[in-house]
């Protein structure tokens, strides 16, 4: 199994590398286009800010490459948000794989903290990523922007409002949470993706 992690100017790519190694997969971390095109699976991680990251992807021509990948692709956190059409973070036009926008959480009081940080449940899971899930499971989130419920919603989470904690369309999969930091549940999700 040939798994590639897209290397770009985002933080914490190493966490995904470590998590895959814990389940017995040694990925390559690369921005080399040939290697990415030939990989069996591609992971698009991300911790950072939308506008800066999107600009970097365009400069490297990685934007076109990612959109046109044919193998299973998994976007994580900012990676998922960048796969959408537009983000309110920095008024950024994104990749447009999922025709939906990314909005900022608007808390109504001091008890709805932003960022949404910590362990929350995912429900209504409808994607092979969640194969074998028979109850709501806790996963780890850290984010201030969210994707509303839409046609591609593959899991939903309630925080301030119900929103999309995972998306799926054709060969593109994405999670708002961090499977690489979500204990055994996260490892199952990564394994499900690898086994697609």
């Amino acid at each position: 199994m040939n798994v590639a992690i897209i290397k770009y100017n985002a933080g914490n790519i190493f966490s995904v590398d470590y998590a895959l190694k814990r389940i017995g997969i040694t990925p390559v971390i690369t921005s080399d286009k040939e290697t990415l095109l030939k990989a069996d699976k591609v992971i698009f991680p991300g911790v950072g800010e939308a506008e800066t990251t999107m600009r970097y992807l365009k400069e490297q021509n990685l934007d076109t490459l990612i959109k046109n990948l044919k193998q299973p692709v998994l976007g994580i956190c900012l990676g998922m948000q960048l796969m959408c059409r537009y983000s309110e973070e920095g008024n950024t036009d994104c990749l447009g794989i999922f025709d939906t926008e990314v909005k900022r959480f608007c808390p109504e009081n001091h008890h709805d903290k932003v960022p949404h940080m910590g362990w929350n449940t995912i429900d209504n899971t409808v994607s092979p990523l969640f194969k074998g899930f028979d109850k709501s499971e806790y996963v780890y989130f850290v984010h201030s922007y969210y994707v509303p419920l839409n046609d591609f919603t593959a899991a939903q989470t309630n925080y301030i409002l119900p929103y999309s904690s995972a998306l799926h369309k054709d060969n593109f999969y994405a999670t708002q949470f961090h499977p690489e930091k979500s204990g055994k549940t996260g490892e199952r999700i990564l394994r499900n993706f690898i086994e697609l």
């Binding site: 998590a19 190694k21 814990r22 780890y140 850290v142 961090h178 930091k181 979500s182």
Partner: peptide, 8 residues
């Protein structure tokens, strides 16, 4: 720690 721990 990062290599062995699967929580934040």
């Amino acid at each position: 720690i990062a290599a062995h721990i699967n929580i934040p």
